[in-house]
Structure formats: C-alpha cells, structure tokens
Amino acid sequence: MDHEGMVSMFEALVASGLSGFMGCSSALFEAALVEFLHNASVRDGIVVSTVQGKPVAISEELFASTFELPMEGLTDLHEVSQDLILEARRAFSYRGKMISTSCKKREMVSEFRLLNDILAKSVTVKAGSFDAMTHERFLMIADIYGGVSVNWGRLLFKIFKDMVTPMTRQARGYAMQICVLLKNAPGLELGESKEFPPLKIITTKIVGTYLSKNKKIYVDEDEPVRKRTSGKDTPEDKKLALVTVAQEAVPIQMLPADTPLALKRKTSKKRLRLPAGSDDEIVEKELDVADLVLEAETIGAVLHVEDSIEVVDITEGQEELDTG
C-alpha cells in the first residue's frame, strides 16, 4: 500500500495485540450462533449458554487465550497519559490543529477515520452511524497510536458480557469470535458453516477505495455543514437571496364614534426558505402592517459537500468487519 499513514495505522493495530481477535477464522454457524445468544447470560463473571441442549461456558481467560489477546496493561482507558492525548489530538486532525476527544469523524485524517470505523464495528460494536468519534474510542485509538500496553482481553470480555446482559444498551456482535469459541467447545456438532462474505473483509483494494472517496471531504474550519449526496452534487455557489420586503403605508382612517371595536391590525406571514439540507430549513417572520419597511439582508449559504463513506458503506452491510 502506497499510503504511508494507512500503513502505519495498520502496523500499530497489529502491534496492539488485536489482530488475533479481528483476524480470526471467518466460518459462520448461524443456527448455533442464534441459539447461543438467545440462551446466554452471565453467572459469576462467566458467560454461559446452552447450544443443542449442551452447556457452554466462556471465561475471561478462555476468551483471551483463544484470540491471543494481551492480559496485561491498562484496564481503564482513562489512565492514558495526558501528554499522549494532547499529541493524538493534533496527530489525528485533518487540518493539523488540535481537535476535541469527542469530535466529528470528518475532522480526522483518513487513516484514523478508518480505524474509528473498525473499532466501532469490530470492538465496541456500535449500531447505527459512525459519524461521531466518542471519547472512549478516541482513547482506544490514542493507545493504539501510542503503542500503549492495554489489557484487551479484559476490556473486550467486558463488552462481550454486556452483550448478553439484560437492560444494557450494548449491541450484540462478535459473531465470528463466538463461532470460533463454539467450534472449540467439546461435544457440539455445528454442521456446515457459511462463508463470511468476502466484501466484508478489509483488503488493500477496499482501503484504496476508501481513500479515493475520502479525498473529496472538505471541512469548514468554523462550522462544518454535512450533506450526503446521491448522484448530484450541490453547487457551491448556490445561494439564497432574501429580497427587501416593503409594506405599503396605510393611511389614517377616521372612524365613527359609535364603532364598538377598533379594527384589529392584520398581520401577514412571510415564510423564508433556506436550501434543502440546511440546519434551519424554514424561518418564519411575522410582518406587522404598522411596520413600513422590513429589510432583510442577503444571506449566502454555501454548502460544502461531503462525500465521505464508512467501512459499512464500502462493504455494503451492517455486519461485523474482519480485518484479517
């Protein structure tokens, strides 16, 4: 791969000790997987379930050893040094300026956008959009970037336990890893496996496509405006001009003394529309007939088009990624 930043990122990811977990066997045993998750729970810190009527127990030690995950190092990501966080805030920045640890993904350089997507789907197992960088994932990426020793066995096993614990908001995942654990469990006949879709495995070609797409991303330093496009780009010079609106002066009228009520002043509504996709699509302004002139300044709303993609966009699905 010619992209130096991507090469360095993947080398750091391998060195972190996560390669055995994310690059494991890609055989799928769907029926056994569904049954395991349906019956799974946590007892005394161990994930237990039944598959084909047989008990299955997965401890932290078994989980870590199966995927050769490090069992030494930080168990609390917040213990990472402030010096490394400050260095990462600048190194991850698309513009070379300090970014927040909770930021929009588009504010980051391509390699760390991709790493954010990988961790979001394959490690922290987040459902939905990956547009925002969370503080937790920022700390994970900083540890990987800085070569910090992390007890990934304990951290990932905790996420695994949350998946089968009722009342947690943890999305379920680790499909490949659970299938590996079930395949190694004694006494289970899992039958024929289903091949993991090749398009969902990150390759050099897929990374190249990711890079070419992300070249079009532009970040406004002041207030980025994000707009997804489908086929047609919005012209940058498309602006909305608000014309000056004037009300005709109403002459004073003499009313008879016996008129019971004064005429009610009428109001008219003017609806000002901004371009589709703007944060404020409709602005309503009440205009009173007592106002002789309402002057509206010309507003130029320049939309910067972002044609970014995520790992799930590349691989055409929402299932887990396998970086092996």
Rank of each mutant, 00 (worst) to 15 (best):
F63V: 11
K205E: 08
M108F: 05
E319I: 00
A27T: 06
T165V: 12
F67V: 02
V125W: 00
I99F: 11
G231H: 08
D233K: 11
V311Y: 03
E319T: 06
E4F: 11
R169W: 03
G73A: 07
E30K: 11
P198W: 04
R271P: 05
A262I: 14
N39Q: 10
K158A: 02
I46T: 15
L37V: 05
N214H: 08
M9K: 04
I202G: 02
S26A: 10
S129W: 00
S278T: 02
L181F: 06
S19P: 01
A241Y: 09
D2C: 05
E295K: 07
G147N: 13
V250T: 15
Q177M: 05
L114P: 01
S49F: 01
K205T: 11
M108C: 01
R226H: 14
T204D: 02
V7Q: 14
A132Y: 02
A15P: 09
V148M: 07
P251T: 10
I309D: 05
S16T: 12
D233W: 04
E35G: 03
L37K: 04
T315P: 00
G300S: 02
E306Q: 13
V207I: 15
E192M: 11
H38E: 15
D2M: 08
E284T: 15
C24M: 02
D222T: 14
V42F: 05
K104D: 05
S308R: 10
S308D: 11
Q318K: 13
V80Q: 09
S268H: 11
C24H: 01
Q247N: 14
S49V: 03
K104Q: 12
G128Q: 00
L74F: 04
V164P: 09
E221H: 07
